[in-house]
Design a binder for these strands. Sequence first.
DNA 1: ACGATCACG
DNA 2: ACGTACGTGATCGTG
Length: 630
Amino acid sequence: MRTLTHTVAGSTVGIHFPERRADIDGFRAFLAGGDKVIAFDTEGTGLDVYTPGHRLRLAQFGNAREAWVLRTDLFAEEAAAALRQPRPFVMHNAPFDLLTVDRHLGVRLEDLGPRTYDTRVLGHLLDPRAPQEGGIGLSLKPLSAVYVDPDAPDTQEGLTAEFRRLGLTKATGWAGIPIDNETYVRYAGLDVILTHRLFSELGPMVREIGLDHLSKFEHHLQVLLAILQRRGFRLDVPYVEALRSDLMTEAEAFRRTARRYGVENVNSTAQVAAALEAMGETLTERTASGATKVDKGVLLPLADLSLGWERLDVRTPNPLADAVLRSKRAEKWATAYADAFLMLKDADDRLHPSIGALQARTARMSISRPPLQQLPSSDWRVRRAFVADPGQTIIAADYQAVEMRVLAALADVPKMKDAIAAGEDLHGFTARLIEGDAFTKYHRKLYKGVGFGKVYGGGAVTLARQTGADLEAVKRAIAAYDRVYPEIKRYSRRLMERAEFGRREVVTPSGRHLPLDRDRLYAATNYVVQSTARDLLAQAIVDIFAAGLGDHLLLPVHDELIAQAPTGDAEEVIREIGRAMESTFYGVRIESDPDVYGASWGHGYGCQVTNGSCVIRESHPQKWGVAHAN
DNA sequence: ACGATCACG
DNA sequence: ACGTACGTGATCGTG
């Protein structure tokens, strides 16, 4: 057996690396040593646990003073047996390791998950900010540097350097580094020692600020979301391959057009700006750093297209602007979506995106590899790639105007609460309240925009720019809005004052503390509203599992849940899921809309059924009717 | 590494 | 006194 030593916070720690059977006695003695909680971590060949060829290489156990780094090619059963002991473990970013051992060691998520603590969750509850936002961040290294040892090694960075020294890269290093490389073993061991020490610090801090209850909730929730990640979502591979090929062809055709106007690379904003100006267009908008702006907002009007890509018929379309827009969109969809889907699929053609249960500063969830919360919604072609399991149908339920309802509840806005209770369309109600019975669609859109402005903390100028409405009209609308709903402004001011004179944070109804930036106190309202809406969906997920409906769930998307059910039961199941999502929050009904989509996710976005499936080469309309036209 | 861009709620 | 659009993930070009 090899043993390495290291210094952590002034004391010497040992890292044991068993090489033969007999060395395992020491590991067993360690397990029997009376530690209440043992830290655990894994090292594998990459981040994507479900892609073919992924392997687990190391399984590490440790306490504050020693680590045991087990090679899983030799000691997989020993590691699995240790994890199956009915005792608590602590991990940093537990869902990743839980899914890894579920897949590779046969230690079930349902068994280990409920007795696992996660130092990342504790770190988020104490301060959710990323380093760029003035926080510590949620990685093991910075948290350890603050709470354990300022000189704690950056094991990730150290390993990257070792990869380079060996002629490996970040992409090849995790699989290619020799399993007994000293730096690799040392850092693998240090990670569990740091995690254990971090837990000893953060656990009591979370308890002291009264967040044990929230911590328990988040630990439970993230295991449920890990179950969704393990389940994955079935991919229609032949469809994606055809889609990819079509998009690539489309992108190439428009790139050729752009080249005729002197643009070699449509992704170069400098080239596009220069070529457009050479064609006689005047470009006035600038980016934050002073470059000429040529984003979608600038190019669409030049191509005589609305924000929804419909012909405006107000000018002669600029063919270069049109070609740049179309080639970039086709290329983005081909690479960011179709390619990524094919890269990340498992051997059974399923995708297992990483679901961050507690991610954003507001605790919003995120989905990555691939980013399934960000698929195009104005066109069904990308979502069509995801299909229900055989015999099942895709279903979904989304909250109706959840952020406005949360705002009405928290700010206690009587007129809004009455309108919600009466089942009124909220934006139409506001339009009638201000403009009288003669209000028009334009008014509804205007006041809907003002409502969003309230939720986001935006002002008249931004709102006018976003909606394209006249600035003076927007100013008048905001003033009228404040007259009929004075409680919203009062609520926002109160939050800002409290943040200015007390702690610079807002506290949500769930007890979550959200730090505010010194010069952006106005974001307080948005943080509480966004975070509370997230907590409502999180509670719904917990309730759906408790009601025995968890097997149906596929994905959370901010204010909706995507699921599947046997085709004959689809309507009934989504009604039940929808009911489980509903609640009364501060006297305000939080309601959901259940919907049966069809064979694919795209069927909820206007995919036309032809012989039982959507056909990508068919032309499709720009608008999908009322269901998603808001 | 960072800015610009674009996809979503 | 006034006004401030919120939160993500991913790719690409540039230096």
